[in-house]
Simulated assay, not measured.
Amino acid sequence: MEHLGALNAFVQTADAGSFSRAAARLGVSSSAIGKAVARLEERLAVRLFHRSTRSLMLTSEGSLFLDRCRRIFSEIEAAELELSQLREAPRGRLRVSLPLIGMLMMPAVMAFMRAYPEIELDLDFTDRVVDVIDEGFDAVVRTGEARDSRLMMRRAGGFAHRIVGSPDYLAAHGVPSTPDDLLRHACLHHKYPSTGKLERWPFLSDGAGFELVLPVTSVASTIEPQICLAEEGFGLACLPQFAISDQLRRGTLVSVLEDHLQEVGAFHILWPASRHPSPKVSAFVSFMADNLLRGPNG
């Protein structure tokens, strides 16, 4: 602590430009500041200031040492802030962007709200690639990885896709046994709203992925219409398993060609890079990373 006191005396003197002004800032005598700096110079065996009766200037060694001292005090301040935030309960407004299929994540979102009642969630649902920082989001949930050095990222779980159809459709049109069989089926596709491109079905053969140009019976920019059309027997759709777990459990949709698909999906939580994220952001990231996708595949 004595060493820290001497370092503080040195920093305050350098900032104030005199022992007397530094003493006034710290509430001690100017002689006490002068003695503290002198003892510091003696211990370091280097002169930190050029002294004259009219001025006090840093030496080159003093300038280097001042930069280090400021970093030391910055680290102390950051550590104190971090500890104070650990004691602070997560609260306040939390602005989050989720993909349009985020409605299917509402069980996890509602569980978070129950766990942290003092956090006010402001949810924005869009498949547009938002600018997290410029648009003022505290966090976003997205597939894919971050390409912005200003953002931190945490994986929130991988998920598999399933090719599904209704029992009536499969009874009428047959159950495909290979991906090539799909060329004779009605296929319901998802279109990326940002690019207009169709999402490819993640086929797997001999451990490697491959693409297959499939018939296009319908195109939708969100998952819900695909689920509805598939349940009503209009064709086969390739959907994230977590999005259709209820339909698979009830039997309104049946999965086919499971051995011919690879797991390619993953959600990530992104938030502005900070050495000490706020308690509300830390709480959201940790909770959603553990709860966003439940079960082995969602």
Rank of each mutant, 00 (worst) to 15 (best):
E118Y: 03
R70C: 05
R39G: 01
S20T: 13
L198Q: 07
C238W: 06
E77K: 06
T143I: 10
L188C: 13
L58Q: 08
Q12R: 13
V164M: 06
I33W: 02
C228Y: 08
L270D: 00
A79W: 02
P277T: 06
I101N: 12
M153K: 11
E232S: 08
A266C: 10
R114V: 09
L4M: 14
M105N: 07
I119R: 01
A160S: 15
L121A: 01
V28S: 04
F242H: 14
L248E: 03
V140M: 12
A16N: 11
R128W: 06
T126W: 07
F112P: 02
A208S: 11
F159V: 09
G144W: 05
R70H: 10
S52N: 08
A23D: 09
R95Y: 01
S20L: 06
A23P: 12
E2V: 07
F242S: 08
I101V: 13
P99T: 12
A78I: 06
A6C: 01
H260N: 11
P215R: 09
T178D: 14
D127A: 02
A108S: 15
D122N: 04
P296M: 03
M1E: 03
V141S: 07
E118S: 09
H3I: 12
L100Q: 12
G144D: 08
R147T: 08
E80I: 11
G165V: 12
P117K: 01
M103C: 13
V28W: 02
L198R: 11
T59P: 07
V216E: 15
P215M: 09
I133Y: 01
R142A: 13
A172K: 15
A6T: 01
A9W: 01
L58P: 07
V11E: 10
A283E: 06
K280V: 05
E41F: 04
G298P: 13
S60E: 15
I227T: 13
L64H: 09
L86D: 08
A283Y: 01
H268C: 15
I244N: 14
T53R: 15
A237E: 05
H50Q: 10
R142G: 03
F234P: 01
S74F: 06
G34E: 08
D181Q: 05
D168M: 03
A160V: 12
L121S: 03
E224W: 02
T59A: 05
F284D: 02
A36D: 04
G235A: 07
E120R: 04
L214N: 04
L44A: 03
L56D: 02
V219L: 00
I72F: 14
E41L: 12
D290K: 14
V216K: 09
